[in-house]
């Protein structure tokens, strides 16, 4: 090999996994309202929302779920009640320090609406885990 050749640093040496946490793939698993809140589109590039106990990565729909998007209230939260009621209001979204909404007061129509949304999320976005109360971890 000629001496003057240009050598590139090998990309697999120990310590070469230096990419930012933000670029690293997130481990699929259990989220709580608190751990989910981090992914609200303000603090990280990634945006997750909870729907019927599942967590979906909606980052590619940033225009809708990201800051100033029409559904931004749902980002980093359990969006089930809002979707069931077809309402984007903050009242429909519980805070991260509250327990999960049991959704046991939904009417049949609201439940059907929520199921429809769930189907859409399943088709469109990757499911990356489940949403549980902290006590259930």
């Amino acid at each position: 090999m000629p001496d003057s050749i240009v050598i590139t640093d090998d990309p697999i040496s120990l310590g070469s996994n230096s990419s930012k946490d933000d670029e690293e793939p997130v481990l699929e698993g259990k989220f709580t309202p608190k751990t989910l809140y981090k992914f609200n589109g303000f603090d990280t590039e990634k945006i997750y929302i909870g729907v019927k106990g599942k967590v979906y990565d909606v980052s590619k729909g940033r225009n809708f779920y990201g800051p100033s998007g029409p559904y931004s209230n749902f980002a980093g939260h359990d969006a089930s009640r809002g979707l069931a009621l077809n309402s984007f209001d903050l009242e429909c979204v519980r805070s991260f320090d509250e327990p999960l909404d049991p959704l046991d007061d939904l009417t049949r129509e609201q439940q059907a609406s929520l199921d429809g949304w769930e189907e859409m999320f399943k088709e469109k976005y990757p499911c990356i885990g489940t949403l549980v109360n902290e006590d259930d971890l």
């Binding site: 793939p25 481990l27 990565d57 980052s59 990757p126 885990g129």
Partner: peptide
């Protein structure tokens, strides 16, 4: 050449993306 693959945003336990 530094980004030759499209990498999924999530991974499962015991697996890479």
């Amino acid at each position: 050449l530094k980004e030759q693959s499209s990498i999924s945003s999530t991974r499962k336990t015991g697996e890479s993306a």
